[in-house]
């Protein structure tokens, strides 16, 4: 059965994030008024990495259940980490945990367990700040991802297939990305095809959409194109999405519009996850 490989330190899986750093990302983001799309993207990628690291954290440290990479595309396509991870296409998640550019402190109100709220200071690691400039070579980014992950799959043929999350406003300048996306999704491990998910950051003021099963109702041609490029959610992911309160109908795809995608990290099974863990 596809998508059933155990994810472990001896048989890790892989997340590759593609982040659009083009000039159009300076435009306003409808997902959070007053913010640019580039700022929205930085918040989203930092939260994704934070959640991925925390998922793998145990009392003794971070277990390398995943290899993780971030490719930026804005003018050119290149590995986007700075500091000790600079230039690396993929790194074990423990190296990501130890390599944020800085750690900020933020306050958050949380349930005190007695019907009230208590304010807590939490640590929020920052790997990426907002960057916008140059064109949007999305075809180039997808092709580079294919090259990187073909090599990774060669070394991990029995793994749970890599997941690529492309975060963009969808305005590619190097042609129709369909062929490059199909080429990427054609990569396969013994456990199934690579999964390509798209997170669309848009200036369009339309309701956020998560994991739709149809492009009907999506607000513009960029959203519709990104929907079509996105892999269908495997049935087990749809099941977990429902348990998390996210309806994902038959045919639901790994696409969200002006919303985050942290839930994808929770979809993956590295062991028992309590129903009451929030």
């Amino acid at each position: 059965m596809a998508y059933s490989a155990e994810i472990s330190r001896t048989n890790p899986s892989c997340f590759l994030f593609l982040i659009d750093r083009s000039g159009s990302m300076e435009d306003d983001w409808a997902g959070e008024p007053g913010k640019q799309k580039a700022e929205g993207l930085a918040t989203i990628i930092n939260r994704l990495l934070q959640n991925l690291v925390i998922k793998c954290a145990k009392s003794e440290g971070v277990r390398d259940y995943y290899h993780v990479g971030v490719l930026g595309y804005g003018g050119k396509v290149e590995p986007a980490f700075s500091g000790p991870l600079a230039g690396k296409e993929l790194a074990p998640v423990s190296a990501i945990a130890d390599g944020p550019a800085r750690i900020e402190e933020r306050t958050k109100k949380t349930d005190d367990g007695a019907g009230g709220l208590v304010e807590q200071t939490i640590k929020f690691p920052i790997w990426f700040d907002a960057v916008a400039g140059g064109g949007t070579p999305m075809c180039g980014a997808l092709a580079r991802a294919r090259q990187t992950l073909a090599g990774w799959i060669g070394e991990h043929p029995a793994s749970f297939p890599p997941i690529v999350i492309n975060i963009t406003d969808g305005e590619a300048i190097d042609g129709d990305p369909t062929a490059a996306a199909e080429g990427l999704k054609a990569l396969t491990t013994d456990d199934g095809n690579l999964l390509l998910f798209n997170l669309h950051l848009s200036s369009q003021r339309a309701a956020p959409v998560q994991f739709p099963a149809s492009e009907d109702g999506l607000p513009d041609r960029y959203a519709k194109l990104l929907f079509r490029l996105s892999s269908p959610l495997p049935p087990f992911m749809r099941g977990v999405a429902e348990q998390e309160g996210l309806p994902a109908d038959d045919g639901a795809r790994g696409f969200v519009f002006n919303a985050d995608m942290v839930s994808v990290i929770q979809f993956l099974d590295i062991g028992t996850r309590p129903n009451n863990l929030r």
Partner: peptide, 18 residues
Amino acid sequence: FDRRPTLIASEPAGNGAL
């Protein structure tokens, strides 16, 4: 059996439905 049972939490906030 599923992979998401309700369990006993070490933090009171996790035990709302205990």
